[in-house]
Design a protein around this nucleic acid. Structure first.
Length: 442
DNA sequence: CGTCCACGTCTAC
DNA sequence: TAGACCTGGACGG
């Protein structure tokens, strides 16, 4: 669950389910967790929560003596969340548990399958982390401008956006969504991008009626504003935000995504090995790397038709990654593409394309039009799809058939096959307004 | 069954 | 700039 919005939603969840409840006794920690014990014990206490960026603080207030408050600060890692259940339904991976006094007892649990999450008893917000992009917007904005000369900003904007010293709360899906909305190439130099934001806002401060300024700002939010607005949209969606596997709410969230993991978008590994999703040009600081390495494509209905040289890549990757320890050093592999071209595969610098693996189509489309983003995407997809169709026989509709078709295609057209991992797509969901081929889990 | 990938930090060469 | 830290789901064979 874990980017800023999920943490904030978690705090809202705690405040909702714990409202009016009395907790008591000891706080239990799982054996397996390496996090510290929480040596708080009290006959009766209440629980409330607040969030800041990617941290949440639980506040434990003794009923008898409200001055004896204690707190626990949580960071969710990749899979942390809070759950509130009956005592006999404590979920797997519940590593910290708070019990109600009243029976049947209920339990507030910190659940974290991967255990990358951490907590600190009576800790503070991590001092290195900047102001919250959602709840401390003005401070956040000032903090960025104030440090623009720092070395940290000599990197691609997409990488700087994951730096919690300046963008506390932004994570991998948010950076993609934000950059996508402004059509900022992810590998543009961060300082240049942000200086431009600063200059623009200064221009705005010039002579214009206040109402006019407000209007302009609202209608043309800049990058930093979007670092606040986009996460706030997720909060407004309600639900749990990014929480794959949990039905209804997740479907709404997935519908909300415009770029991250969306079929038709491109993706690349940034220099830290994180996948950045985007549309259009990657930007000047994009990772080197010879040919465009394609990656997989999710098996999804519409796009599915596209085949490509799946195995070439799959095989390469496997080889490259084989021995984690010994071989890891050798990240570069010379790979002979069937098409006759050689590509250098760097373990973490692969270019990936979605479906068609034909980036030219996208570029051309973009250059030629000023359509709105959504429309663009649709257009691109349509182009791609129609191409595919024209290139081969009618597209089979069942997954099995699709796979077969893809294979056949791959046989004569050795293109690496990208395979993003969203599940099956749902054609029926596509509408003129929300064109994206979305996939959803079953 | 094995491989790849995932919403994020951390610290050790 | 790599690993390390973890579990589990989707896929491919």
């Amino acid at each position: 669950m874990p980017e800023g919005p999920e943490l904030h939603l978690a705090s809202l969840f705690v405040n909702k389910v714990c409202d009016g409840l009395r907790f008591g006794g000891k706080v239990e920690k799982s054996e397996v967790s390496k996090n510290p014990e929480v040596p708080f014990s009290c006959p009766e206490y209440t629980i409330s929560a607040v969030s800041r960026g990617k941290e949440v603080k639980l506040i434990l207030t003794p009923v008898a003596d409200a001055d004896e408050v204690a707190s626990v600060i949580f960071r969710f890692g990749m899979s942390g969340s809070f759950k509130f259940t009956a005592e006999d339904e404590i979920p797997k991976h519940a590593h910290l548990r708070f019990f109600t006094v009243d029976v049947p007892r209920k339990v507030l649990c910190f659940v974290d399958p991967r255990r990358f999450g951490t907590w600190e008893y009576n800790g503070t917000w991590k001092p290195e982390r900047g102001p919250c992009v959602m709840m401390e917007y003005e401070k956040f904005r000032e903090n960025v401008f104030k440090h623009l000369s720092d070395k940290a900003f000599e990197k691609p904007i997409c990488e700087v956006m994951l730096n919690q010293k300046y963008f506390n709360g932004i994570g991998n899906y948010l950076r993609a969504e934000i950059l996508f909305r402004l059509k900022i190439p992810p590998f543009m130099p961060a300082r240049a991008v942000l200086e431009s934001v600063r200059n623009q806002s200064q221009v705005l401060n010039a002579d214009l009626p206040l109402s006019k300024k407000v209007k302009i700002k609202k209608e043309n939010p800049d990058l930093l504003q979007l670092c606040n607005l986009v996460p706030m949209e997720v909060i407004q969606l309600g639900g749990k935000g990014y929480d794959p596997g949990h039905g209804e709410d997740y479907a709404a969230f997935e519908q909300w995504l415009q770029c991250y993991f969306v079929p038709g978008m491109k993706s690349l590994r940034d220099s830290n090995g994180r996948t950045i999703w985007f549309q259009g040009e990657p930007g000047p600081l994009a990772p080197k790397g010879k040919g465009k390495k394609v990656r997989k494509q999710r098996k999804s209905v519409d796009i599915d038709a596209k085949p490509v040289k799946a195995e070439t890549n799959a095989t390469k990757r496997k080889a490259a990654k084989a021995k984690s320890t010994t071989v890891k050093k050798e990240c570069k592999e010379e790979v002979m593409e069937e098409g006759g071209e050689t590509a250098v595969k760097r373990k973490r610098a692969k270019t990936t394309e979605n479906s068609m693996g034909d980036s030219k189509i996208i570029s051309a489309g973009e250059r030629g039009t000023h359509l709105r983003s959504k429309r663009k995407i649709v257009d691109n997809l349509e182009v791609k799809i129609s191409r595919r169709l024209s290139q081969q026989s009618p597209v089979p509709k069942t997954p099995a058939r699709k796979r077969k078709a893809a294979k056949l295609l791959a046989d004569d057209t050795p293109t690496p096959k990208p395979r993003p991992r969203r599940l099956k797509s749902d054609v029926s969901k596509q509408s003129q307004n929300s064109p994206k081929p979305r996939t959803r889990r079953k």
